[in-house]
């Protein structure tokens, strides 16, 4: 007698227990809408990149030829011309930046990861490196201006390179530290067990094992530096001439770079310059992408 209502109750419940998905139920509808929303957001976020790439290929590609890669920038009203000196300038200044920041950054990373990871100076240096990651690139330019341009009295490639070095440094230090820390303790123990000094453990085992990871970071830093403009604006300035002429390098003089050329030409009222700015952008993006892909390829080849 008492069970009957219970049974009925449970049978009523059985209908509500239907395990099939109900499309029109509010929560599954809401879920669907949110998923569609997420898709739309992702697609919208891809639009700018596709637009940038399209413009680069169409507008930049149209003008890209041997001439623009090898000639000097034209004056305002001139036709033709190119940005050969700017490519050289960019490569030279990124090279200077790398020469300063890479060895110095890797050595510092070795200290942070291996030789004194828990020391106070390591914590302070790590904190500083992290802070430098967020340093506005224009401030790097102001710093190089203050310590090099004001002192030497001239805009120059080393001043530009110095500003770039400051921006590359934190990437190099932090990624190298990560890579060095990934080396298994096991392997280090083996080396210590053989009677290696700590430096020998680092130079014979830890560094070679971490090298791919370190190079990944280096390539990322180089890629980022090649695209930088702000730090070069008033350290290297710009130049309409070759950096190397008659076998001599005019390093202590204003130096051209692709990025500053794009900036300068983008504001000019001449169609020729604007076309060159697009072509230079294409070259610059390709340059950056080459370093980026190198970094990825090296990263993947890791054991």
């Amino acid at each position: 007698m008492t069970t009957r209502p219970d049974l009925l109750e449970s049978m009523k419940g059985a209908k509500r227990f239907d395990l099939k998905r109900s499309f029109w139920e509010p929560r599954s509808l809401r879920s669907l809408l949110l998923s569609i929303g997420a898709w739309i957001v992702a697609l919208i976020a891809s639009v700018p990149l596709i637009s940038v790439l399209y413009m680069l290929i169409v507008r930049g590609g149209r003008r890209l030829n041997w001439e623009v890669l090898t000639e000097l920038p034209p004056a305002g009203f001139e036709e033709g011309g190119g940005f050969g000196n700017a490519i050289v300038g960019t490569l030279v200044m990124v090279g200077i930046g790398g020469l300063i920041s890479i060895p110095f950054g890797i050595l510092a990373a070795i200290f942070l990861a291996e030789l004194g990871p828990d020391s106070q100076i390591a914590n302070a240096a790590r904190f500083c490196a992290k802070t430098l990651t967020g340093l506005p690139s224009i401030i790097a330019g102001v710093f190089a201006y203050a310590i090099l341009v004001l002192v030497t009295g001239t805009y120059s490639a080393p001043a530009g390179g110095m500003a770039l070095a400051l921006l590359m440094l934190p990437t190099v230090v932090l990624t190298a530290e990560e890579a060095l820390k990934m080396v298994p303790q096991n392997m280090k123990n083996a080396a210590f067990g053989m009677g290696c000094t700590h430096s020998q453990v680092v130079s014979k085992i830890v560094f070679p094992t971490a090298l791919p990871g370190i190079l990944t970071g280096v390539m990322l830093a180089v890629a980022r530096a090649s695209g930088e403009t702000a730090p070069l604006l008033f350290t290297a300035l710009f130049s309409n001439f070759w950096l190397f002429e008659n076998g001599r390098a005019e390093l202590m003089a204003p130096t051209a770079s692709l990025s500053v050329l794009i900036f300068n030409f983008s504001g000019m009222p001449y169609e020729n310059q604007i076309e060159l700015a697009w072509a230079a952008s294409l070259v610059l993006v390709l340059l950056v992408l080459v370093f980026n892909s190198l970094s990825r390829i090296i990263g993947r080849s890791r054991i």
């Binding site: 096991n186 083996a190 094992t209």
Partner: peptide, 27 residues
């Protein structure tokens, strides 16, 4: 460091270096 040079050690997990067999032994 000198103590460890006079006592060889073999660990729980095999831990050869990431180099050739010859270089491992010649290390």
């Amino acid at each position: 460091v000198i103590v460890r040079r006079h006592m060889g050690m073999v660990f729980q997990q095999p831990n050869p270096f990431s180099m050739s067999i010859f270089d491992n032994v010649a290390f």
